[in-house]
């Protein structure tokens, strides 16, 4: 598989997992939350601060449908991570000496 096709396929899987699959994820509290509840320190958690993001809580502001709002938040998160991470790694990478054959 060519690198470009591989990367696109991987991104498609990530978008499907976050945009569609996440709706079917378990909504039970996760390990830490469960332990906090069970041993009695969950109350010490503060409410999350409002950063002004429309995707707080993996929902989308203004979208009432849980499936759609959650899916949009998931897709936005994947793309934000890709742009920030991809940009960072692009800056960090060692540039290879320019060669005529490397057009990728």
């Amino acid at each position: 598989m060519r690198t470009r096709s591989f990367l696109l396929a991987g991104l498609l899987v990530a978008l499907l997992v976050a945009g569609v699959g996440s709706y079917y994820a378990s909504s039970h509290p996760d390990g830490l939350e469960h332990v906090a509840q069970q041993t009695g320190f969950l109350d010490s958690a503060d409410d999350p601060k409002d950063t002004g993001s429309p995707f707080a809580g993996y929902e989308t502001k203004g979208v009432d449908d849980a499936r759609l709002g959650g899916g949009l938040a998931g897709v936005a998160g994947v793309l934000l991570t890709l742009v920030i991470g991809g940009g960072l790694f692009r800056v960090l990478r060692r540039r290879e000496a320019p060669s005529s054959t490397d057009a990728a």
């Binding site: 990530a14 997992v17 699959g21 994947v78 991570t81 991809g86």
Partner: peptide, 11 residues
């Protein structure tokens, strides 16, 4: 690839 891995872990 590293950018994709980050995005995949988010998902």
């Amino acid at each position: 690839m590293a950018g994709l891995v980050a995005a995949f872990v988010f998902a």
